Simulated scan of single mutants.
Amino acid sequence: MPQLDAKGRHAVAFTLNGRPAAVEVETRTLLTDALRHGLGATGTHVGCEHGVCGACTVSIDGVPARACLTLAVGIEGCAIRTVEGLAPEPGRLGSLQAAFRRHHALQCGFCTAGILVSLDAYLALRPSPSRREITEVVGGHLCRCTGYAPIIEAALEAAAELRGEGPALAPSENAHA
Rank of each mutant, 00 (worst) to 15 (best):
C78V: 04
L39A: 08
G77V: 02
G91S: 06
L39H: 10
L4H: 14
L162A: 10
P127G: 14
L16T: 08
C111M: 03
C48Y: 00
G77W: 04
G8I: 09
E84W: 06
A154G: 06
S172G: 01
E136W: 14
G77Q: 03
A177E: 15
L30T: 02
G85P: 06
V137M: 07
D120V: 14
I115K: 12
N17E: 12
P20S: 01
I60F: 02
C145E: 09
Y122M: 08
A113W: 05
G8K: 11
L31A: 02
G43E: 06
H10M: 04
T57S: 06
T135G: 12
A121F: 02
L156H: 11
S172W: 15
A159N: 05
C78H: 13
V12D: 02
D5P: 13
H104F: 11
H103A: 09
L86V: 09
E157F: 09
P167D: 12
A99Y: 03
L119N: 14
D61I: 04
D5R: 12
G140Q: 05
G51A: 01
C56S: 02
L162Y: 01
L31K: 02
R131D: 05
T135P: 01
R81L: 09
T32E: 01
L162R: 14
Q97T: 09
A13H: 15
T27E: 15
L169T: 10
K7W: 00
A168H: 05
Q97C: 13
G114Y: 03
L39C: 06
R131C: 13
A113M: 02
E26V: 12
A72Q: 02
P64S: 05
L116R: 08
L119F: 01
G94W: 00
L31D: 07
L86M: 15
A154E: 10
R101G: 03
L71D: 01
I151G: 04
S59Q: 11
L106E: 10
Y148G: 12
E49M: 03
T146H: 05
